[in-house]
Design a protein around this nucleic acid. Structure first.
Lengths: 224, 224
DNA sequence: GCGATGTTTCGACCACGATCGAAGCATCGA
DNA sequence: TCGATGCTTCGATCGTGGTCGAAACATCGC
């Protein structure tokens, strides 16, 4: 019972499912807003806010205020390392893999992440957009190339860079552990997918289900 | 959102003060009985028993029954590494360490981490072993070189690589924030240090205290 | 200024889990 | 066989902390 660093305090911060989901979402290194984290964690905005202030007070997060957006990120690589260590143990002791379930499987393939597409389809799409040089990696940023601007414009997706919100942003995918496309462009693409009826949003879920024809169209346009 | 290894489950196991104290006590590497752990955690026996079964179910502990005694120990070096990582974060964000205190200072210099040596001495040793090419970095792994195998063999440390547990592993040190050597080789070196009486283990603590002569010997052999 | 959007605070509710005493098992030494 | 010791299970209590709706606060575009 002797004193030491308060390890229980830190561990219990990670020990709540909602907070664990938030931290997991932040493991990609990109800072996220409170709303995005609320969606990732599957809790309401007030609840998420409460969790975030606890994580802040615990020193696990940093906060960058930009106007009315507040971007939360992991405080340090040390914190990320700790979470990796916990993930490692969880994987080692929990080979459970309880039957994925159909909704779960659908979620892995494609789902909504805030206002853009996530899941295997989205990750594949981002890869392909890089391959075709429609998007360019710049350090940790993503930029729209001139050919990309023309390409999306031809698809009826016009991005006016007016918004304070970045046009392109990488967003880490929990199921694939790689990035997919967020930002206004990501949102616009999801809008198009829904508008063209290539896919529909599953009720009461984040899953996005493509129709057979819609899937072909999507792949022709974005995965070609 | 959810899916993936259940990190919240693992973290919440560590997140209870009583359980955290137990795990901390077990970081010394010696298995302890339920009564000892109850005392260490400052809770009654029934409470401790309940905590222990939770830790067992979570896969964090191993149990060795010997007659009417039941010895609990950490399940693996991986679990120990996770706890070290959490301690590191707790130290970093922790409140204004009030005067380190002598025991704390001794812990920084050298201490037991599960079954191997940690602390400044251990970090310095790993650095030196790399310099002398007795160990080789390979990506994020550590490998024993042929000259290293010969060297340790000459010291009476024979490592049979058959074990499923890796021979060499890096383990992050909370006090120095750099790696020290874990794995069977790390354990064997600690065994030698104790067997040669170069150092003794402080009672009721993880600190390892070198004798003046032992320190010289250790430095001659491992830090030369 | 205005309404719209993003975020936090407040208040109230409720459940989970930590806790302990007493009783039940299990194993030891005779 | 017996009592003693080490540990776990049972049952009941209780407080901490997660949760959300409503409202307040902050900042933007206009």
């Amino acid at each position: 019972m002797r004193e030491g660093p308060d390890i229980a305090r830190i561990a219990s911060l990670v020990g709540d499912p909602a907070r664990a989901n938030m931290l997991n979402a932040l493991m990609g290194g990109t800072a996220l807003t409170a709303s995005e984290l609320a969606l990732e964690a599957g809790v309401s905005l007030p609840t998420a806010s409460s969790h975030l202030s606890k994580l802040m007070e615990g020193g696990l997060l940093t906060l960058a205020s930009q106007g009315r957006h507040r971007y939360y990120g992991l405080a340090s690589a040390q914190v990320a390392g700790m979470i990796e260590a916990i993930i490692g143990v969880a994987e080692a002791v929990g080979p459970k893999r309880v039957r994925p379930g159909p909704r779960d499987a659908a979620m892995r393939v494609a789902r909504v992440c805030y206002d853009h597409l996530a899941g295997e389809q989205a990750v594949a799409m981002l890869d392909r957009l890089f391959d075709r040089k429609l998007l360019l990696r710049e350090d940790s940023e993503i930029r729209l190339s001139s050919s990309g601007a023309a390409h999306f414009s031809a698809l009826g997706i016009d991005i006016q860079a007016r918004a304070r919100r970045p046009v392109c942003r990488a967003c880490l995918d929990w199921s694939v552990r790689r990035s997919h496309l967020a930002g206004t462009l990501g949102a616009a693409i999801l809008d198009k997918i829904i508008a063209e009826k290539w896919a529909r949003r599953e009720k009461e879920s984040r899953a996005v289900v493509f129709s057979p024809g819609g899937k072909r169209e999507f792949e022709r346009v974005f995965l070609a």
